Amino acid sequence: MQALVAKVMDKRLIDLLDLWRAAGPIADPSARFSAHADHLLVIDIDTAGNRYTHYGRAFVRHFGADLAGCVIDRLPADILPADRRGMLDFDYAYARRVRRPLWRSYTAMFDNGAQEETWQRLVLPAGGDRLVVGAYPVMVRHHEDPGAELLRMVLDRVPVVLNDDDGIDDLALSLRAFCDHQIHLAELEWRATRDSLTGIANRAHFHHLAGMELDHARRMGRPFTVLALDLDHFKRINDRWGHATGDTALRAFVTACRQALREGDILGRIGGEEFAIALPGTGGEGARLIAERLRQQVEQVVLRTESGETCAMTVSIGVVSWTERAPASVSPDDIAAMLNRADTALYRAKDGGRNRVEVAPEE
């Protein structure tokens, strides 16, 4: 098994493992593993949770943020998605418990989603409540040795525990447990990014998705529009027929929006009866027509309450667009700023009598 590990493990991780096995306690991980500093994480457990006390520059480049000093458990979902958080939580807890190196391979989108890469990661107990983690991008290559190829395939699915002789001691998960674990992570990711009532993107996830589309629009010189929407007199529905009817109204509103929108448009619930929509590749008159079509679609919704009464809905919409003609002073990379401008147009629609579409003037 030792020979198979040597064939499959990245040479840089082999060097890191040799340094870890060197005699003596690891008082200063940055000094012991200085050759790997850019690809190294040091994690200390304090009263707040798992905290990065060293965050290598390679991770800053690939993930777009320096998380040194941050508590992992408190990172927002747009920085650390639920699936990755679950994987890290499992690996770190397991390595601390067994006090042995944990080795795995994983494939994900890096460089802010620009490219897919495969990395190998080694989690090393460093005494007390400290872990040292090294990770490097690797070229995926198939091995002629059937044993090495099998190990590579297993490594892509479950973490491997190494023994004192650098051989394989155990699998951290059975394959059945791995499948159950992946299903659980998928459920966690869905809950972290979705509004529980309507199933559409929650506020944070909307900002994340819309932000990526806005950045793409800027790079490609394409128009981009954000709509701010607010259901008119929604409080009256809750007060008259109860919150259950209000929830039904919100779900019916989302259904109407989906019928009026295109496949690539992004719908999110910002809070309460407030919603937002991103329209990639659309600006000007095209965006206004979509907003008007959506307003008419909602106007046609009729709900029947438990008492047999009918309940109608209308929506007010504010529209703000960015185009390649925007002056340099306009920052196209801030969805929050665009939503603020769309909200201003939305309130003009409210003041103008509701059930209206108002377009923000170009800056």
Score class of each variant (00 low, 15 high):
residue 127 G to N: 06
residue 75 L to F: 14
residue 248 T to D: 14
residue 80 L to G: 10
residue 334 D to V: 09
residue 301 V to N: 09
residue 196 S to R: 06
residue 11 K to M: 09
residue 207 H to P: 01
residue 6 A to V: 03
residue 26 I to A: 10
residue 36 H to N: 07
residue 189 E to P: 00
residue 153 M to F: 02
residue 298 V to L: 08
residue 212 M to D: 08
residue 223 P to A: 12
residue 234 F to G: 13
residue 336 A to G: 12
residue 171 L to W: 11
residue 41 L to P: 00
residue 327 P to K: 05
residue 344 T to G: 10
residue 93 A to K: 09
residue 177 A to L: 13
residue 227 L to W: 00
residue 339 L to T: 02
residue 191 R to S: 08
residue 269 R to A: 08
residue 200 I to K: 00
residue 77 A to P: 00
residue 290 I to R: 11
residue 260 A to W: 09
residue 298 V to D: 14
residue 117 E to S: 09
residue 57 R to I: 02
residue 158 V to R: 01
residue 284 G to M: 06
residue 363 E to F: 07
residue 59 F to K: 05
residue 80 L to C: 10
residue 122 L to G: 06
residue 140 V to W: 02
residue 59 F to Q: 05
residue 78 D to V: 12
residue 233 H to K: 08
residue 52 Y to R: 01
residue 294 L to H: 04
residue 270 I to A: 01
residue 186 A to K: 04
residue 333 D to C: 11
residue 163 N to Q: 04
residue 93 A to P: 06
residue 18 D to S: 13
residue 31 A to N: 10
residue 32 R to F: 04
residue 120 Q to M: 13
residue 179 C to Q: 14
residue 302 V to G: 08
residue 14 I to L: 05
residue 250 L to C: 09
residue 191 R to H: 08
residue 269 R to D: 14
residue 37 A to C: 03
